[in-house]
Design a protein around this nucleic acid. Structure first.
Lengths: 147, 147
DNA sequence: CCTTTTGGTTATCAAAAGATAAGTAAAAGG
DNA sequence: CCTTTTACTTATCTTTTGATAACCAAAAGG
């Protein structure tokens, strides 16, 4: 069937694409290992950059860790003073985590470096092309990579 | 500066997008853990799916492992009979790895499941939209996520 | 030839991540 | 009230991953 085989081609493209995304982000976040955080801890901090404050359950869900392991990594981040903890007064079982000042500073440092890497990759694109790029990201995020 | 702040917005979008790609691929490849391979081993097998045969050096480069650790994981995959090894006769230092029949079958099984997951995500898109999707992937891969 | 470089392997150790059991405290629901 | 559920923590053990040193054999290059 025609639509089936073209779907296969599209699928192959998606697989190759996701592999490329993984490889490029791995390369660009390689500066993280200069900082004193493990990859799992970085993922947690990155998630906090996008959404604050967050509970351990939310982190576990979105980062793909079990709740006990999330709790352990959060404790380590607290020990490193990269995040802060507070109880949710409307439900005192819930713990609210946010980046500390140090954590913010560290993530800003890392993000600045990652941003530099991305900017090198899109340097030389015209405004028209940048607009198309943004539209492409929006489209993919609304279809294939929606949550 | 206008172009600078719009670049920041684009960067934020890229960060959120890459996080979404990681999360979705993690979710869709969750069936991998029914099979007897670790995440690192899966990455190697996935790379072999896209390009065969491959040498340990190529794998190390593309998958982001050190050569000794790549060699270790390849040995484990050989023990599991998921790949095969042969010397390159034109340069007998080089070792050529490819998927075994079992490995092919396993990856086909996993890919079929992943493909099903992706197809659910793009079900209901018109042919026009699918074409746009493919164009969007091509654009991103040629700019931001090129290697 | 002989040295150096390249491609790969083996071994070993430490760190990180995954899994699971058992526990605490607050909230929800009869 | 009393029980159950939810949210989280602690502890422990195993597996996986990362890093490094030492090694071998083939090729490259004088």
């Amino acid at each position: 069937m025609e639509s089936n085989s073209s779907q296969n081609v599209l699928f192959q493209k998606i697989v190759a694409f996701t592999a490329a995304v993984h490889e490029v982000t791995h390369e660009l976040t390689s500066g993280v290992k200069n900082e004193d955080v493990t990859p799992a801890q970085y993922k947690i901090l990155e998630y906090m950059m996008l959404s604050q404050p967050v509970t351990p359950s939310e982190i576990a869900d979105c980062v793909g860790l079990s709740l006990p392991n999330t709790s352990r990594e959060l404790r380590k981040l607290l020990e490193k003073k990269l995040c802060e903890k507070a109880v949710d007064h409307s439900d005192r079982r819930r713990q609210l985590f946010r980046l500390s000042e140090d954590g913010q500073a560290m993530m800003n440092r890392i993000f600045a470096q990652v941003q530099k890497g991305f900017e090198q990759r899109i340097a030389g694109l015209s405004n028209q092309e940048l607009t198309e790029l943004e539209a492409a990201i929006t489209l993919l995020q609304q279809t294939v990579f929606r949550q």
